[in-house]
Amino acid sequence: MGDQNPDHSRTEAGRVLVPILIDTLVRTSQLSLVAVGLSMTWGIVRFANVAHVQYAPVGAYFALVAASGLGLGVVAGSLVGIVAAGVVGVLLHLFFFRRLSSFSSATALIGSLALSIVITASIQAIAGPRPERLPLPSAPGIPIGDAFVTRAQVYVVVLTAVIFVALFLVLSFTNLGRAIRCVAANPDLASSSGIDVRRISTAVVFAAAALAATGGVFIAVDTSMSLEMGSTLLLAVFAAVTMGGIGSVGGSLLAAAILALAESTVLRIDFGAVFGSHPLLIPISYRPAVGFVAVILVMLFRPQGLFGLGGRRA
């Protein structure tokens, strides 16, 4: 093909690629933060905790209350919200899920479904059904080529990177991290080798809920928070966790990135051009289908994860 107008084609590519890149990075941050906690706790609690994604809206709404209700401001308010969500996660683990798991994992699974509904209904009853925003000053977007990136989006991506580096360092190089990995991989073996499994589990559950809450706050910062935040995350997050391999931090991050990329590109691909017919774009409202379809395909064909980084528990 002749390159008659290189300048034009460069801007053309930039016009498509830059928004995809921004979109993917922001979405990866949000998905991976929620997914990584589920991935870490799944090996410990041994049932698919459907309620995990609900820590995202819980964190976001707590942050809202702390930021505007208590007047702490967005940064301090978000921190309070995240810690509070972590505490909620621990309390639920100690007084709800432990008991249900002792009956059967099916009971715990149904319980987690019940809990998600209770959380959604509570938020709706207290905060009302309308989406809410964190009290952020409106800042002008930073132009990159033809696209814009908001200051909030930059913070979200950078902070997520920092969190994952920190998480990686803690898990790899500290005693606590080694204990956590050991417990996540095989709780029975860990307890027989002298690790205080209860204490470690509690710590992991706190971290997992807090990370999910961070994801929720980041979504709220980027757009807004709503009741449906948890349920819209649910299947994409489960897809990311199974794709990445249960228990694998790096796997969750990588899988979240793949899903995010898929979500932002699939909608922009002109399938008409691919098949040589009329323009045929998948409508934007089908965006959630990427997660739905991904979860079905991954669980059916690669239940052990795409990359062999983590393991599926027996």
């Binding site: 698919a48 089908y286 739905f292 079905i296 239940p303």
Partner: peptide
């Protein structure tokens, strides 16, 4: 046939959500 119980639960949820979409 190939799915563990909790995976199956999630997959059925995904199928229902696809239908709704």
């Amino acid at each position: 046939r190939t799915l563990a119980a909790d995976y199956w639960a999630i997959v059925t949820l995904a199928v229902a959500e696809c239908l709704r979409l």
